[in-house]
């Protein structure tokens, strides 16, 4: 019975299947919201599911000169990385034991797909893929530093390197969202870079890079890459809820679960609005913005938190 229960937790709720469906739902929400911002109607609710099934049933072709083993492995591995990260960020339902330093593990697991994304561009022979891959690596060096610095604000205040520690510290002192609003927005900025969303979608910029590293991928592999990205969105957002909104909900309760979900939806609205408002940055503009403005800001913010 115990084993069955564990299996259920891992595979269905709150594990694999539930996270997957949440990811698909949020992808629909994102597209619908952007469509509404632009005065359109937007796709129906089943759209991500249909897209995914269709992509999985399509023919899988790779251009000559592409390493087939790598091309198959990369999307699988990056999917596995994000999926693993989702187990450390439970959806308000306790699954794995939190331990000291698991926030580092999560950051590592979330940053791996970006590297694999670069590799995906590198192994395929197309020009757009290689250039897109290069750009994603360039971008990686700016937003990743910002993300790490900004998120460490919560670690400094709570004095704990574990997600559970950060959460429980917020339950007593109140959420970090309002007191650390600057840090929150810096984290969001880093997260947008991680997810390669507008306005940081430089590696896959449609008007010059076609689809970036994914240009030559089709069928199942493309479906898996897209699923990874959708999953990464949800995991990244729930990471934000864990670190900045820990005071608003309680792990393991029904009310906590719904608050958690509501917060996720609100954050998704924020991301969609940012996507709809801004034009795409140029890579040099992005790096300048990050290294000259946002990263020093995050450092000063952290310094302020330490001194306080």
């Amino acid at each position: 019975m115990n084993i069955l229960h564990m299996l259920f937790e891992i595979l269905i709720f709150p594990g694999f299947a539930f996270v997957l469906f949440t990811a698909l739902f949020f992808h629909w929400l994102d597209r619908k919201l952007i469509a509404r911002f632009q005065g359109r109607i937007g796709p129906p609710w089943y759209q991500p599911v249909a897209d995914l099934i269709k992509l999985f049933s399509k023919e899988d072709i790779l251009p000559v000169g592409t390493n087939e083993v790598f091309a198959t492995l990369l999307p699988l591995v990056s999917f596995a990385f994000v999926m693993t990260a989702s187990f450390y960020l439970p959806f308000a339902v306790p699954t794995t034991q939190s331990f000291e330093g698991d926030i580092i593990v999560v950051i590592f697991l979330l940053s791996m797909p970006s590297l694999l994304y670069f590799l995906a561009g590198w192994i395929t022979s197309g020009v757009y893929s290689i250039l897109g891959g290069n750009r994603s690596l360039l971008q990686y060096f700016s937003y990743e530093v910002l993300f790490l610095l900004a998120i460490s604000g919560t670690v400094i205040t709570s004095g704990s390197w574990s997600l559970a520690g950060i959460r429980s510290a917020q339950l007593t002192s109140g959420s970090y969202f309002l007191p650390q609003l600057l840090g929150f927005f810096l984290t969001v900025s880093g997260l947008i870079g991680k997810l390669k969303r507008d306005p940081y979608d430089i590696p896959k910029a449609k008007s010059e890079m076609v689809a970036g590293p994914l240009t030559e991928f089709s069928g199942k592999k493309l479906g898996l890459w897209q699923l990874t990205n959708q999953l990464q969105t949800v995991v990244g957002l729930s990471f934000l809820v864990h670190t900045y909104f820990g005071g608003y909900w309680q792990m393991g309760t029904v009310g906590g679960f719904f608050t958690f979900y509501l917060l996720l939806i609100l954050l998704q609205c924020l991301l969609s609005a940012i996507s709809a408002i801004y034009a795409r940055f140029r890579i040099d503009q992005l790096i300048r913005l990050n290294w000259y403005a946002l990263i020093p800001l995050a450092l000063i913010h952290n310094l302020f938190l330490v001194l306080k």
């Binding site: 952007i34 911002f37 632009q38 005065g39 359109r40 507008d198 306005p199 979608d201 910029a205 449609k206 008007s207 709809a276 408002i277 801004y278 034009a279 795409r280």
Partner: peptide
């Protein structure tokens, strides 16, 4: 132009 610089919203509005 707006679509090419990644500002899809202006593309939608101007075409509307």
């Amino acid at each position: 132009l707006a679509k090419n610089i990644g500002l899809d919203t202006i593309f939608m509005y101007s075409w509307r």
